[in-house]
């Protein structure tokens, strides 16, 4: 049987923590290795910390450190792909897909998690999701991993139907919060929200964090 291995591919340091930390933690608990391929260093982020401690030129260095800490908190490997924040959609899709494919063929994962193109709000999310799908499509049938795509857009359920996978990550909540908290420059707003209203039921924002939802990508149609 093939060795299980999960690869998460998102463009920004913190996408992994907000979007999939619970799912990641559940795999780590079972001893399944997880690798995060992080597309950019979030160089163009608007949040400079609150109070402000970064500037446009130092932000990427802080975010790189935060990314490493988050991946330590989640006990996963990380590889930085070296693209620049907010420019991914202007790269050639085939080129990014080829780059990803070579890494995936080396790691040989059983599951790949990425954003659902067209429903992931941030242009980098959509662009990298599209390249990931292309990359996985180009892997030969016998080695092709399963692919889960995550939608974020407000309307997504209306258009795509109910997600195939819906993880209630409550058992991993502390782990997820610990991962989010490492992203100090980005997460202060979210963390104060969580501390104000720790009750899941009264906070829609937390509900998004509690249920990690994915669509299983179907390569046959």
């Amino acid at each position: 049987m093939t060795q299980e291995h999960v690869v998460v591919i998102y463009p920004h340091p913190d996408d992994e923590s907000f979007g999939a930390a619970g799912t990641i933690a559940s795999y780590r608990e079972k001893g399944v290795p997880v690798t995060y391929l992080c597309g950019t260093l979030g160089e163009m982020g608007r949040n400079m910390g609150n109070p402000v401690f970064a500037n446009r030129e130092t932000l990427s260095s802080y975010r790189k450190e935060e990314l490493v800490k988050a991946c330590q908190a989640l006990d996963i490997d990380v590889r930085m792909l070296g693209y620049r924040d907010k420019t991914l959609e202007f790269e050639q899709v085939e080129q990014v897909a080829g780059h990803l494919q070579s890494i995936l063929e080396e790691i040989n994962p059983t599951l790949v998690i990425t954003h659902y193109p067209g429903y992931a709000v941030h242009p980098d999310h959509d662009a990298l999701g599209e390249a990931v799908i292309e990359a996985v499509r180009n892997i030969e049938d016998s080695r092709r991993p399963e692919l889960w795509a995550q939608a974020i857009a407000t309307n997504y359920e209306k258009e795509l139907g109910e997600p195939d996978i819906r993880h209630d990550i409550k058992p991993y909540w502390d782990k997820k919060m610990a991962a989010i908290e490492t992203h100090l420059s980005q997460a202060s707003g979210m963390m104060s929200l969580i501390k104000e209203k720790p009750d899941f039921n009264e906070n829609e924002e937390l509900e998004h964090l509690r249920y990690e939802r994915f669509y299983r990508w179907n390569y046959n149609n």
Binding site: N47, N50, E57, S60
Partner: peptide
């Protein structure tokens, strides 16, 4: 008010690098 960047103008005699080298 939340400390988020809205506009930036930076001037340098050497090209800006992909990642700032001043920080580790």
């Amino acid at each position: 008010r939340e400390g988020r960047l809205m506009v930036a103008l930076e001037i340098s005699e050497t090209p800006f690098s992909h990642e700032s080298v001043g920080q580790s």
